[in-house]
Nucleic acid binder design. Structure first.
Lengths: 329, 329
DNA sequence: CGCGCCTGGTTACGCGCGTAAGCATCACTG
DNA sequence: CAGTGATGCTTACGCGCGTAACCAGGCGCG
């Protein structure tokens, strides 16, 4: 009994109508011309057979699928990334769109090729796309929605810079003037780390504070303490550490604890992201929390608006970012 | 100049051959019957036009896509989950298969329907599927590869129980006899927490130790300390906590720290998962690390083997699980 | 020389679907 | 009662692709 899956033709036969009628009924055709009794016969037949339309057939006929491609830079997926992707997926699903994430890893097919293969409806990206990719997409008639650029979008780089600024604002308000900036070891994270560090630098410059001292936090736990010790020796005037994100902050915090450095008495620490575990460190970590659902909702709205040819409304920063003061500052 | 995307017909015209020839060349047809010069003309034309085959067309012609659906229970995505999914995706991609994850959230379309719409090649699942779903999939001729069941697969429940057993093994070896089991607050996690807790119970029973005392760790940081205090008051004989996973363990550890309880002197703590941040707690957390890449590789191999009609070889537990002793035990 | 056989292609069809265009039927009007 | 719309459905086509079936030509062989 391992039959094939039912097609709309099966439904048509079952309901005693033509295939076209089935299609009109199931798609709620705008110029509704099907009588109510017929409608019900078709719907009943479809339910009885467990009919589910083939997306392949529909895509071929329509010329495009309902897939939206999210272009992600090649970054190791962290807590926040997955929460964000999850939220975008849900927001788009509410519009009948399916999100597929494309990680720009060297081995993967290039973005325009994948977009063509999937007959995607649109391509979303957090950062401006390379001109070559944009041109390739335009050439095949695919809309690119660069959420990371322009004034109406959730300008990603600006948001990242804002996070850095907020870190400095909080530290400056509590009297710190000599800062260090803790960078992650993985070079692929520089797409995010760069703008955040820029925000910190700019905020320092605005306040006429000396530029923050950069230092890298190694991935290897046993090397972290040595890196922190080196920082304290090289830049003894530093009283606070801005970390790239909470994970880097927690690693640095561990190094400080190993060295029995008083936190926040001797050195204050602040992170970004607001991951759940930041509440459980010793001492609990002060951080700039990101509301991924709010950011994702906006990205999704922006995408839908652009697909409809409208302009999206800017997202208020307060909805997405806020300070969680805890015990490390 | 926003033309349509090139089709194989465009390539055929460009190369001066028929569309069938293009198809044979680009798919490396098994009964190779195309001359080398022609091959090269076709390949050159395809490259020149930037041709990418439409997956919709291919799916329709083949009768199925290259998509494999991974059925996930409705769990909040944690660190390990995303690492695992990532690893499965890569392993399957190496076989030319595309992984799509289906989260069984109440709002989503049901699994068999989605599988039909995508014309999937197979459905993977970490746990045995409901009989109704299995029947529905079989009826439409879709193979289900239940990696979570059977003796040749990566029997998920057995693996989870094994993790619990390993926690007890380590604690018993260091002299602990009265254990508590720390459960997550989110009820959806019970699909994972149940088997792990069972493993702990069984291991205790095997050693004729008293049954572990269960207690729930709240999601709200401010409520954690009270929960831990209640545990210590209600079950003062307990000397060690097995936690559902590292996040729960770190939360419990935070509660113990707040109460100034000596760890591991008065209470030992052990987690599961081996997330990076477990190395940075105070004190650093002992845990049963899971190698998601190894598990994923096996799951992917198992899936591919079953698609080819073979049986998969069992995965050695040592490849997937190992103890990381740190300072909390 | 006629036959079969390999080589290197081509032509023809169908996969499941959306939809434009066609075609009965019937109510209503001048 | 012929003419005119609406109403309710069907027929016909094409989307891009894989592939079975077919066919032209060259070559060895009895």
């Amino acid at each position: 009994m391992t039959g094939r899956r039912p097609t709309s033709a099966d439904v048509a036969r079952e309901a005693g109508v033509s295939r076209a009628t089935v299609s009109y009924v199931l798609n709620d055709a705008p110029g509704e011309r099907i009588a109510q009794p017929t409608r019900e016969r078709v719907l009943a037949a479809a339910a009885r057979l467990g009919y589910a339309p083939s997306l392949a057939g529909r895509t071929l006929a329509n010329g495009h699928s309902d897939i939206v491609l999210l272009a992600m830079p090649d970054v190791p997926a962290g807590e926040l990334t997955s929460r964000f992707v999850d939220a975008v997926t849900r927001s788009l699903a509410a519009q009948g769109l399916t999100l597929v994430v494309h990680f720009d890893v060297p081995a993967a097919p290039r973005l325009p090729r994948l977009a063509a293969m999937l007959s995607v409806r649109a391509v979303l990206s957090l950062f401006p796309l390379p001109d070559a990719d944009l041109a390739a997409l335009r050439r095949v008639g695919i809309r690119a929605v660069p959420a990371g650029t322009g004034s109406d979008g959730l300008a990603t780089a600006a948001l990242l810079r804002r996070q850095g600024r907020m870190q400095v604002e909080h530290l400056a308000a509590t009297g710190h003037t000599r800062l260090a900036y803790a960078l992650p070891a993985d070079p692929r994270l520089s797409v995010f780390a760069g703008p955040r560090q820029d925000g910190v630098r700019q905020a320092c410059a605005d306040r006429e504070l000396p530029a923050p001292v950069p230092f890298t936090v190694p991935d290897d736990p046993s090397a972290v303490t040595a890196a922190v010790r080196a920082l304290l020796a090289d830049a003894p005037q530093v009283t606070a550490i801005c970390a790239y994100n909470d994970e880097v902050a927690l690693a640095a915090l561990h190094g400080l604890r190993e060295l029995a450095v008083d936190v926040p008495g001797r050195i204050a620490v602040i992170g970004v992201d607001g991951i759940p575990l930041a509440a459980y460190s010793a001492p609990p970590l002060t951080t700039i929390a990101v509301a991924p659902a709010a950011a994702a909702l906006h990205l999704a709205r922006s995408a839908v608006a652009r697909l409809a040819g409208e302009r999206a409304t800017p997202v208020p920063v307060e909805d997405v970012l806020h300070l969680i003061p805890r015990a490390t500052t």
